[in-house]
């Protein structure tokens, strides 16, 4: 930020006192960093290609369950290295979750701004859509769309992006209307500013913290949705792999080789837990008005 050495005033945003976050949040930050590094560096750190077969070592147990260090987390029914698959699954799941979160925020914020700017008919349409998507369980909607359109990676990400769009739309519309009715946005409008300038330069930065908090709260939900759909075999399709599809395929070997699904399952839990903790913490700090 550009506010360098200004003296802190009573009602200034609490930037000055930067205490260390609580240990759980710290853990979340560390774990999330680890996951991000894994996703970015997947090609470098992966011991094998995630499709490489090792038929002599099928269903080999991980090192800590009596296996060898050849495959630290064991292998699956085709002798594919679980660690390598886990690394690429993390990359895939995070990619989908990031893409979908950003798409959802973009769509929702845009529609919210459109509703606030045009009011009248446009607003009614947006609000009807908000009601509509808030009144159906998203999983069912997503399943219906997948049934009608079949599955492709792009469609899948866009579909998950529709999750929670209505929250951003509500927030963006509500805050833009209140800014426009008597606040800074009205002032800038009567300076002669174009809508682009009003929304891009003024309204968006003012509501960004609220939107970011909403994004951190939606992110784990999208990871859970993605893994749920992939677990059902309706999300990420082979030969690609994601955390959910690993659990789904590993389910068949639950009795003989539980390690196939335990590591991706643990990764899902820790990642969603981390982002939720960070999100709650951010919400309390940045925007206590959100529930």
């Amino acid at each position: 930020m550009s506010d360098m050495t200004l003296p802190a005033i009573a009602d200034a945003p609490p930037r000055a006192k930067r205490a260390l976050p609580p240990p759980m949040v710290l853990f979340g930050l560390v774990w999330l960093t680890l996951m991000l590094l894994t996703a970015v560096l997947a090609d470098v750190i992966s011991p094998y290609a995630y499709t490489a077969l090792d038929l002599r070592n099928r269903l080999a147990p991980p090192a800590f369950m009596g296996g060898t260090w050849l495959h630290p987390l064991g292998t699956d029914e085709l002798g594919r290295d679980v660690l390598a698959r886990l690394i690429y699954s993390i990359r895939m799941s995070l990619l989908i979750a990031f893409g979908a979160t950003i798409i959802g925020a973009l769509i929702g914020t845009t529609l919210g701004f459109l509703a606030a700017h045009f009011r009248g008919f446009v607003e009614q349409v947006v609000l009807a859509l908000v009601d509509f998507s808030a009144s159906l369980p998203f999983l069912i909607l997503a399943l219906a769309v997948l049934a009608f359109f079949g599955n492709s990676m792009v469609l899948f990400i866009c579909l998950l992006g529709l999750h929670a769009w209505e929250r951003y739309a509500r927030i963006a519309r509500g805050l833009a209307i209140s800014a426009g009715s008597q606040g800074y946005a009205a002032a800038v409008r009567q300076l002669g500013a174009s809508p682009w300038r009003i929304y891009g330069r003024h309204v968006l930065p003012n509501i960004a913290s609220t939107l970011i908090v909403s994004m951190t709260l939606a992110f784990p939900e999208i990871i859970l949705l993605e893994s749920g759909l992939s677990f059902l075999g309706l999300g990420v399709q082979p030969p690609s792999t994601s955390l959910g599809s690993m659990v789904g395929y590993g389910r068949e070997y639950l009795t003989r080789a539980p390690w196939i699904l335990l590591s991706p399952a643990l990764t899902i839990v820790l990642t969603t837990l981390s982002v939720s903790l960070i999100g709650d913490w951010l919400r309390d700090r940045l925007d206590p008005t959100l529930r």
């Binding site: 606040g183 800074y184 009205a186 002032a187 800038v188 009567q190 300076l191 003024h202 930065p205 003012n206």
Partner: peptide, 14 residues
């Protein structure tokens, strides 16, 4: 141009 009643509200806090 216009001058408003509430100057804090009329200015962008960011």
């Amino acid at each position: 141009q216009m001058v408003f009643q509430d100057p804090l509200g009329a200015l962008d806090r960011r």
